[in-house]
């Protein structure tokens, strides 16, 4: 954990350097893919076209077609939204829940803290993927349930991270000062403590995004949560696997899409961590 002395000041703005350009370009490209991927895809991602079934990659179908004649390239483009938006929302929700829990629990300390943290420990005693699977199976399929399940996996991990920093901060003079001038706990938590943990929360979020992409893709691959015609990348891999010997392009291109986005997300996270000069948060799997 970063010692309090080495914390960046809350108001300092990180300078933009030439080395940051590829990272920003990557983030913009992914955002563009989520926003316009379905709109710019050359063919319909779900329409059946038996005449062109199982065609290898060609000019008309750059990534080939699947057993129903659907264009894999279009499916990969349209699949960005169901794959990535879900992961982003889940990471945001988990980190936000964790940040609030960590802030409140760390500041109040005592019995509240003890009970909250033991509850978080109980949630952490499940392997992440297994917990998410169980929750989605019981709640039923659907994007909201998947987001909730992945957020539930991240919640205790983010809460612990934020709490460990808040416990340090809460003993410092500026908190004492605020308390003695009669500020409410609400003010101290959100106006005094929150700005100081914001950098940590942002970096935590960026690392969770990768973990969320992996979790969401693994859930889809295991057949949990995403219903078939949706071109989610993990589901495409699952459906393509039985045909891997005759049509390897069915799994190769969605796999490559997952690989590009998640490796890119890791590199962006590492970069952010360096910009904010923070130690790494553990990955949440």
């Amino acid at each position: 954990m970063a010692s309090v002395a080495s914390l960046p000041r809350a108001r300092r703005r990180p300078r933009l350097r030439a080395a940051d350009v590829p990272f920003i370009a990557f983030v913009l490209a992914v955002a563009g893919l989520i926003a316009f991927g379905a709109a710019v895809s050359p063919h319909d991602a779900v329409a059946l076209d038996p005449l062109h079934a199982l065609q290898p990659p060609s000019l008309a179908f750059p990534f080939g077609t699947d057993e129903f004649g659907r264009d894999v390239f279009s499916r990969v483009l349209s699949g960005a939204r169901p794959t990535l938006l879900l992961a982003l929302a889940a990471a945001a929700m988990g980190v936000m829940l964790g940040a609030v829990t960590g802030l409140v629990s760390g500041y109040l300390s005592g019995a509240t803290d003890e009970v909250t943290m033991r509850a978080m420990d109980a949630l952490m005693s499940f392997p992440g993927l297994v917990l998410a699977m169980l929750v989605v199976v019981m709640l039923g399929p659907g994007p909201i349930n998947i987001i909730g399940a992945i957020a539930l996996v991240f919640w205790p991990r983010s809460a612990r991270l934020v709490r460990s920093m808040v416990v340090d901060l809460a003993r410092r003079e500026f908190v004492d000062a605020a308390r003695s001038r009669g500020e409410s706990p609400h003010f101290i938590i959100f106006r005094e403590l929150l700005p100081n943990v914001l950098a940590l929360v942002i970096v935590d979020f960026s690392l969770r995004v990768t973990a969320a992409i992996l979790l969401a893709a693994s859930l889809a691959y295991l057949g949990v949560g995403v219903a078939p015609p949706t071109p989610a990348w993990g589901l495409m891999v699952k459906d393509g696997q039985p045909l891997i010997e005759i049509a390897p392009w069915l799994v190769l291109f969605p796999c490559a899409a997952i690989a590009c986005v998640s490796i890119g997300a890791v590199l962006v996270g590492e970069r952010l961590r360096r910009v904010f000069a923070l130690p790494g948060a553990e990955a949440g799997r």
Binding site: L214, Y221, V237, V251, L252, S262, L267, E270
Partner: peptide
């Protein structure tokens, strides 16, 4: 390490199968 950590097991596994 960055590569293998960022990839879901089934991506590595399917490439290995291929």
């Amino acid at each position: 390490s960055v590569g293998t950590h960022a990839l879901p097991e089934y991506v590595i596994g399917l490439v290995a199968i291929l």
